[in-house]
Simulated assay, not measured.
Amino acid sequence: MRLDKFLSQNSDSSRSLIQQAIKAGRVSVNDVIAKKGDQKLLGDEIITFDGKQVEAFQTRYLMLHKPLGYVCANSDSDYPVVMDLIRLPRWQELQIVGRLDIDTTGLVLLTDDGQWNHRITSPRHECDKIYRVTTANPISTDTAELFAAGVQLHGEKAPTRPAQLELISSHEARLKIHEGKYHQVKRMFAAAGNLVVALHRESIGNIQLDPALAPGEYRALTAEEIKSVAP
């Protein structure tokens, strides 16, 4: 890898600023001042930039407790976005793994590992997602059977895959689905004659939202959590 490419990937400096720093003698390779940005690296060198060692970033896997009112996007002209909550270098490279609506709270995963993201979000892997649902009206006793059989949503060619509904109270339930259709949970309850007034994602696969995380907080996933959803 070229020296300038390594520095641009592993620091917050732009390629042009890195080139200026190299010309000014502010970058060293194994204690030797670098003279060209296209200098080839073998991978075991010690790189310093303004006297500080630069190490290669590791692939990142995060869980975020998404608050109300945030859009799952890198930018939005009207609303705050979840990326506003991330205070990490190269935050722009993080991908949102399974988006939530602006009025939905709970677990959001982020990573810069595109293959891991795909293994979770690809429909053929049927990664479970569990939501806590609050409805405007009492949940009918036959709703669980309806969801287990599959619901024909407006505008969809095929019914939803079988889903599991666990009643918590007259107006609350946990719903486990394997898909991620547009507004799926809300549309399923609408098809059952009800209205979702609050929606909170508790888990994706075997990863559960850490109860220690307040809305807007995030943490790195453990090695066990990373492997559990996409071995």
Rank of each mutant, 00 (worst) to 15 (best):
V97M: 00
G98S: 07
R99T: 04
D101F: 03
I102S: 02
I102R: 04
I102K: 04
D103K: 10
D103Y: 05
D103H: 07
L107P: 01
L109H: 01
L109C: 06
L110M: 09
L110D: 12
L110P: 14
T111A: 09
G114T: 05
Q115M: 13
Q115A: 13
R119S: 11
R119G: 07
R119T: 12
I120D: 00
I120T: 05
T121H: 11
T121M: 15
S122R: 10
P123K: 09
R124A: 13
H125D: 08
H125Q: 10
E126L: 12
C127V: 15
D128A: 11
D128S: 14
K129M: 02
I130M: 08
I130R: 12
I130N: 03
Y131G: 03
Y131K: 11
R132N: 09
T135W: 01
T135S: 07
N137E: 15
N137H: 12
N137I: 12
P138W: 09
P138G: 08
P138S: 01
I139R: 06
I139H: 03
S140R: 14
T141A: 14
D142P: 00
T143I: 08
A144K: 10
A144Y: 01
E145S: 15
E145C: 10
A149E: 14
A149G: 11
Q152T: 10
Q152D: 12
Q152V: 06
G155V: 01
G155F: 04
E156H: 01
E156C: 14
K157V: 10
K157P: 00
T160W: 01
P162S: 07
P162H: 06
P162K: 00
P162G: 08
A163Y: 03
Q164D: 14
L165F: 10
E166R: 11
I168R: 07
I168P: 00
I168G: 06
S170M: 13
H171C: 14
E172R: 11
K176C: 14
I177W: 09
H178S: 05
E179K: 01
G180L: 12
G180V: 08
G180R: 06
K181A: 13
K181D: 13
K181Y: 04
K181P: 04
Y182E: 05
Y182Q: 11
H183I: 03
H183D: 09
H183G: 04
Q184E: 13
Q184K: 02
V185A: 06
V185S: 04
K186G: 06
K186P: 00
R187S: 02
M188R: 02
A192N: 11
N194H: 15
L195Y: 12
V196H: 01
V196E: 03
V197F: 04
A198G: 14
A198M: 07
A198R: 13
L199G: 00
H200M: 11
H200P: 00
E202Q: 14
E202C: 10
E202W: 11
S203C: 08
S203E: 11
S203I: 09
I204C: 04
N206G: 01
N206Y: 04
I207T: 00
I207C: 04
